[in-house]
Design a protein around this nucleic acid. Structure first.
Lengths: 340, 340
DNA sequence: CTGTTAGCGCCTTCAA
DNA sequence: TTGAAGGCGCTAACAG
């Protein structure tokens, strides 16, 4: 039977209101009594019941993170950031894994009750306008991580500057002398698309434009987001008579597929073909893959900050926190071949 | 301001005890009043406050899952099972990501307070005897998933019959006529080892023994658990003058490394070399990798059941739930080469 | 069967 | 500065 605030009060010979004040760091307590109370707390190994606090404070001290667990290793990395950051606060974190539309709606429904959470974090999952409107009408604070869409400027969010990342990747290749640069990605439009791929594409186009390089439509192809999809796409590209000398893949996973396609043709990397990915996932280092690093862990961290801020200052202005990207040069990119 | 039980009582013209009874499906309510109350509940869109329930029931209605998020894709799959199963209950799930020893102790410390959780689930993380003893002394129900160690028979747990899985893999190869069968894994002894690899090895040995095949020490090698580690190990094996005709890898990830080593030597699979993995991870299907499937998702599911049972019937006997394994035959195993 | 009452453990006025 | 009292929303025991 754990000690309650009442036991502590008795032990310290004070009223239980005083104990509460000590717990909550209220300044209106004399040093002497505070000390007595502290001592009693330790003697009894007292820990205030979070549940009773919640009821009294009318807060749940709980926040929800809604994310598609699996889809990408990057989501897990973001969740790591969220989890570790929450640990330093008084909040509990409940993760909801959302893989289907039904589940998404169900979770949204259950979260909509103010009784359950103080705030929600949505990760790598673009809400429909309807979903968003519905949720916002509940008044529960919300923050978005890795969700970037025009109709979202009424919500706190942390995004990655993917347009810039695309530009950086392209510019890196241009500086190495490449002119025939291809872009491989998952589909840029359709249902439940990762908006990031589109933005990376925009950055790619800007890079080419700025360098005065003509855009060749045949060099932009997209397909299934997996490594295998990318492998096939790359095979197509490499079969062209004037094949690209460099390929920019929208993710490291896809870049690995490109690597495999090159290996299938026994091409030397980077002598015959330069390859750059995106994300800097764990394995990239091992592969020597040049890539655009984005701050996955940090995005989770920032997301939590934004959400806590939205909870504590509901009327603060909306924040769009944009994280930077950086090219990590490894061994899959090099000067354009002379012979081309 | 959400409706409370009191509002409902007033609206339905009954006492609030009656409303509580209706909510909790108590049989001692007449059809007529139950109907009136139900109606009032719907009209007011009333949802009982979980927090108030908790305080009153003296339960947290929360369970914790402690797991190393990353280490393996398999852990995520198990967590999926846990999450989905919890969703069907009244409990909330809090996932604690534990990557370091410090964090492990910290989490244990915070969980040890009865105020926080009704039960804990530990996944793919072997506790030291001391940790276990300390936790059990708190009286909080505990269940283990994918943790199998001799000193753990005082705890509910769900494990996989890895010895059998190892035997199945080996037997499959033996039936194809192979006799020179190698086993590649991560280290079988040392700090914080995955006990599963050792058990798979035992099964492998039993399979050979039963078939009357002599065990060749040179065929058991272990190293870093990654794909790259396995690739190197396999390269060594394939460099032997009487190289194995089949390789059993302790995980699919490692089997992929073996595939790469074979490709490095331009060997035909399965004509020149048979390869079998373990886990049946998502990508295995795509690769055509023959493997031993274990029930990852289900292990999470069972873990939750065991834990809930331990919570509801604290005095029930200890359960060790063993999940079965199954060989999934694909395209990386075949008859032993004639020429050998 | 149903209404009433007394807590669950804590926070927060309100007086003193 | 401090103690006492009232209440957060719900459950459960007790009369009726």
């Amino acid at each position: 039977m754990p000690a309650t605030i009442r036991d502590v009060a008795k032990q310290a010979g004070v009223g239980l209101g005083t104990v509460s004040r000590v717990i909550n760091q209220s300044p209106k307590v004399s040093e002497a009594t505070r000390f007595r109370v502290q001592q009693a707390i330790e003697e009894l190994d007292f820990h205030p019941s979070p549940i009773a606090r919640r009821l009294s404070l009318k807060k749940t001290l709980t926040i929800a993170a809604v994310a598609p667990f699996f889809t990408r290793p990057s989501v897990i990395e973001r969740l790591r950031g969220v989890e570790l950051t929450i640990t330093g606060t008084q909040y509990d974190l409940i993760i909801y894994n959302v893989e289907t539309k039904e589940r998404q709606d169900a979770v949204l429904e259950s979260l909509s009750r103010r009784e359950r959470i103080d705030g929600a974090l949505r990760i790598s999952l673009t809400p429909s306008e309807e979903q968003l409107a519905r949720f916002q009408s509940t008044g529960i604070p919300l923050a978005l991580v890795d969700v970037n869409d025009p109709h979202l400027d009424s919500v706190n969010r942390v995004t990655v500057d993917d347009e810039c990342g695309g530009w950086q990747a392209t510019t890196h290749l241009l500086e190495l002398g490449h002119r025939r640069i291809a872009y491989i990605s998952d589909p840029l439009s359709g249902e439940s698309v990762f908006s990031a791929s589109r933005q990376r594409f925009e950055g790619y186009l800007r890079g080419l434009r700025e360098a005065g390089v003509e855009v060749d439509e045949r060099y932009h192809i997209h397909g299934e987001a997996s490594r295998y999809g990318a492998r096939e796409l790359a095979a197509t590209l490499l079969g062209l008579s004037d094949r690209p000398t460099a390929i920019f893949a929208a993710s490291d996973t896809q870049a690995i597929g490109v690597l495999e396609a090159a290996r299938d043709r026994s091409m030397q990397i980077p002598d015959e073909l330069s390859i750059i990915g995106y994300d800097d996932i764990e394995i990239a280092d091992h592969l020597g893959l040049t890539t655009v690093r984005q701050q996955l862990f940090e995005s989770g961290e920032h997301g939590v900050w934004l959400l806590l801020k939205a909870i504590e200052e509901p009327d603060a202005p909306i924040i769009n926190d944009v994280l930077s990207t950086e090219v990590i040069i490894r061994r899959t990119t090099g000067k354009v071949p002379d012979t081309v």
